[in-house]
């Protein structure tokens, strides 16, 4: 079994409202899995079902091939979007309490906490109360508490909100490192640039249904239109453009370049290959810029959601 987490045909109603409709996902081991979707699509419900906070009406969830059981909370680390800590409790005490609730022994929790506090250079916060910390500082504690018990599955809901760019990078690197150490990460966010940066797999949930699922690169390949962005330099631009237009489907393009070039998006149709296009272009003009247009996660998101 190569999938750490599998959800099969999960449905959930709240009264008359259908929050999830027959949703299945499989999260491969060692991947960073992006769970995407517009607000209110049902992501949080799915995450809560995985965390056994709510029970599905039908369908089942498997962790490492076995149906979820109450003790599995020790294997999952969850950073909810609505996060918080006991404001009047001391940092160290609180972290110890939460770690023990996850099944760690007190000594083990202490050792791990020391490791993380040293790593993030916040050792002197131990006796501070949460209300004395800034929001970003509290977020750091929250992150540590989430990963402290070395869960094999980490679930982050908008992990970067509230962080400045420096700390966001710090946390991002920690997530990547945890992944490299063998953890699997489910990552729910609206920030497409971090999806682009981190995720290998994505699933898109829209109006309670899963409408897209797979490796990010496969999806991009699926969504690409065989379009190439080219920049050309020539003495008689009109002739060149016309001769290109007679052979290919051409759209205007905008990109930044040093020279005042002809800028075009050229869409290829089978069986023409990119090499054929390049050969054709070099015979007509000097090629300064030649890039395949790959749809961004943002484009895919908007396109799929609006088409549905």
């Amino acid at each position: 079994m190569n999938d750490v987490l599998v959800a099969k045909n999960v449905s959930k109603h709240f009264g008359d409202f259908k929050a999830l409709n027959d949703v299945s996902i499989a999260v491969p081991k060692g991947s960073i899995f992006g769970l995407l979707g517009p607000n209110g699509a049902g992501k949080t419900t799915l995450i809560r079902i995985i965390n056994q906070i709510t029970m599905p009406d039908s369908g089942s969830v498997f962790l490492d091939g076995n149906p979820l059981k109450p003790t599995d909370i020790q294997n999952i680390g969850y950073l909810p979007e609505e996060r918080g800590l006991y404001k009047s409790m001391k940092v160290g005490e609180q972290a110890l309490y939460l770690a023990q609730l996850k099944g760690m022994s007190k000594q083990d929790a202490k050792d791990r906490l020391k490791y993380w506090f040293d790593k993030l250079e916040i050792g002197d916060w131990w006796n501070k109360k949460i209300q004395e910390l800034s929001k970003g500082q509290a977020q750091k504690i929250q992150f540590i508490v989430t990963v402290l018990h070395r869960p094999k599955l980490l679930i982050f809901d908008e992990p970067f909100s509230g962080f400045d760019p420096i700390n966001a990078t710090l946390i991002k690197d920690e997530i990547l490192q945890l992944r490299d150490e063998g953890a699997t990460v489910i990552f729910s966010t609206h920030r497409m640039e971090s999806v682009e940066e981190l995720c290998d797999h994505i699933a898109l949930i829209h109006k309670s249904n899963k409408i897209l699922d797979g490796k990010l690169n496969d999806i991009k390949r699926q969504y690409k239109t065989n379009t190439f962005e080219v920049g050309l330099q020539t003495s008689n631009p009109d002739d060149v453009v016309n001769s290109i237009k007679s052979k290919f489907e051409v759209l205007p393009a905008t990109f930044k370049n040093l020279n005042d070039d002809i800028k075009l998006n050229i869409k290829l149709s089978e069986p023409t290959s990119s090499n054929d296009l390049l050969t054709f272009l070099t015979s007509k003009a000097e090629v300064h810029h030649f890039v395949e247009v790959i749809p961004s996660a943002n484009d895919i998101f908007i396109q799929t959601v609006t088409n549905n």
């Binding site: 906070i53 969850y78 909810p80 609505e82 918080g84 800590l85 404001k87 939460l98 609730l101 996850k102």
Partner: peptide
Amino acid sequence: SRIIEVIISS
């Protein structure tokens, strides 16, 4: 304080 979700995931 919004800690509830963290707690009941445990």
